[in-house]
Nucleic acid binder design. Structure first.
Length: 225
DNA sequence: CGTCCAGGTCTAC
DNA sequence: GGTAGACCTGGACGC
């Protein structure tokens, strides 16, 4: 989960003379990921086009109703505490009614069911994709595969890749866009402009973008860049 | 009570 | 390849 195999040395080397991100060289910038790649993808789908409260509701329901209770942990039947995130098989076996009436996932229900089935029958090998080194599976190839998954668009693909240890794509959404604009003192900044600004970080552009957005959390205090 | 939109995506031009 | 419209849900908002 701590992605300790991710080698950030090249990234830190690139930040040696970076005014904005040199602070990260102290060992900042590692992304916390899920025990399984399937969980990373499902959680991400549950962040799309909805408020954070909805994301929590959907994921909470998946865990509480489909996940396996941890051994020796006594919990209420409807609680998510003490349970593992459900496996692809467990999600695949859930009914449409569960997604509609319990998780209240709306149109995402069909996406999650389809994804879970693809993982179960072996058509989609998320775990292998996550484990594959760049030399074997390029960022472009991984991105195109993720984009073919139901419910995964540009935002989700970039987010999942970040969790998979590929910090090349910028996670652009309704939180990061205004967040970046505020940091540079503008009301609005076009995606192309942001992409151009971070192009210099090469295959670590997404990680650099993310770090900049969270810089104040690491250093304390809000400041413009 | 109607409209808007939140850590977007998909389909049809 | 770029762009409207539709899409589940529910909390926030204006009236």
């Amino acid at each position: 989960m701590f992605a300790l195999d991710d080698d950030l040395a090249p990234f830190y080397a690139r930040l040696a003379d970076d005014v904005d991100l040199a602070f990260a060289r102290a060992g900042i910038g590692r992304m916390l990921r899920s025990p399984s790649a399937f969980e990373d993808v499902v959680r991400t789908i549950c962040t799309t086009n909805c408020a954070w409260s909805a994301t929590e509701r959907m994921i909470g329901a998946l865990v509480a109703h489909l996940g396996t209770p941890a051994e020796g942990v006594l919990v209420a039947a409807d609680a998510w505490r003490g349970r593992a995130f459900p496996s692809a098989a467990q999600v695949a076996s859930a009914s449409e009614a569960f997604f509609r009436d319990v998780a209240r996932a709306g149109y995402r229900g069909a996406y999650m069911r389809a994804l879970a089935k693809s993982v179960v029958d072996g058509a989609v090998e998320l775990e292998a994709w996550r484990a594959a080194p760049r030399a074997t599976l390029s960022d472009d190839e991984l991105a195109s595969r993720l984009l073919e998954l139901p419910g995964v668009g540009p935002y989700a693909a970039a987010h999942i890749m970040m969790l998979f240890g590929r910090g090349s794509r910028l996670v652009l959404d309704s939180w990061t866009r205004p967040r970046y604009a505020k940091l540079v003192g503008k009301a609005f900044v076009a995606d192309r402009t942001i992409e151009r600004r971070f192009k210099r970080y090469g295959d670590a552009a997404g990680r650099a973008f993310w770090l900049l957005l969270w810089k104040s959390r690491h250093l304390g205090g809000e400041r413009r860049i």
